[in-house]
């Protein structure tokens, strides 16, 4: 999985590409932990190029959103591809996480 980071004002956008599975999820977890530790409080996870998420990946998404919220911040998820959307729906993530149709909409929700 590739992670590309960009910053818009106080919002960090992490664009995820490829597969978020048990092998790749530690990489994202470390990235999110580092952002929270560095004081970032608004993060968009852009999933437009993410074509797979496993239970380990879901756990990192939930853990990351929880850590941000506990630190007074927020996470917003954007542009879920059909396979990722299906897993979000199955696992109830659509009900507890903020999911938006595009990275721009997700960023606007955090502004």
């Amino acid at each position: 999985m590739e992670i590309t980071a960009s910053t818009q004002n106080d919002i960090t956008v992490l664009a995820l590409q490829g597969r978020l599975d048990g092998l790749a999820s530690p990489q994202l977890e470390q990235r999110l932990d580092a952002l929270v530790a560095a004081g970032t409080r608004k993060v968009v996870l852009d999933c437009a190029a993410l074509n797979y998420v496993s239970s380990a990946g879901l756990r990192v998404f939930l853990g990351g959103a929880k850590k941000l919220k506990s630190a007074g911040g927020r996470a917003a998820f954007a542009a879920l591809t059909p396979p990722v959307h299906e897993v979000f729906e199955l696992s109830g993530f659509l009900e507890v996480l903020a999911v938006h149709p595009s990275a721009a909409a997700a960023a606007a929700s955090l502004a």
Binding site: S54, S55, L58, L62, V87, L90, S91, G92, F93, E95, V96
Partner: peptide
């Protein structure tokens, strides 16, 4: 019920 779905296993 919503919380119970959050873990795939």
């Amino acid at each position: 019920a919503s919380l119970a779905k959050l873990d795939l296993v």
